[in-house]
């Protein structure tokens, strides 16, 4: 994934001023660490979700909107982790550079192939549905080694 994050970073670094550090907004601390590893001192990283918080259930704060407003690149985990708050932050920030589909938006989960996804999920079947699906997958295709 780092290999894929690099082109995205280089892209915005070229686009941004040669002197100023690239403003990167990472949704989680793990994504922030990744950006710092790749970008070094060429990037200035703002993390939106603190490490002690469930990133599913955050609320959009004005400070998040401000950070995205000033961002050159947004780095998200994806796979619907930030679904409750990131879309509204992106909407309110009025920063066209970092909208999904533009070069300033990077989503980690979209760079890999997700496993065990696309199964029929129904909350009426309870929250152990994932475990059940995983078990049935193992039964079909053999237990993981």
């Amino acid at each position: 994934m780092t290999r894929r994050l690099l082109p995205a970073l280089v892209g915005v670094m070229v686009a941004a001023s040669a002197h100023a550090a690239v403003n990167v907004v990472a949704t989680t601390t793990s994504m922030g660490m990744l950006v710092r590893t790749v970008g070094g001192d060429r990037v200035s990283v703002t993390v939106l979700a603190p490490p002690d918080r469930d990133a599913h259930y955050l609320q959009a704060r004005p400070s998040m909107i401000l950070a995205v407003r000033r961002a050159d690149l947004v780095v998200a985990v994806g796979a619907e982790l930030e679904i409750a708050w990131l879309p509204s932050v992106l909407e309110s920030a009025a920063n066209a550079r970092v909208l999904p589909g533009r070069s300033g938006y990077f989503e980690a989960a979209a760079q890999i192939s997700l496993i065990e996804k696309g199964e029929t999920a129904d909350r009426a079947r309870g929250t152990y549905i994932r475990r059940a699906i995983r078990t049935s997958t193992w039964i079909r295709s053999g237990w993981p080694r």
Binding site: G78, E80, I83, P87, E91, P100, G118
Partner: peptide
């Protein structure tokens, strides 16, 4: 392809994320 898309954001962007 611009594959780095948040699924719900993709819905905003005109796809259903699938």
């Amino acid at each position: 392809v611009p594959g780095n898309v948040h699924p719900r954001a993709a819905r905003f962007a005109g796809t259903d994320g699938t």
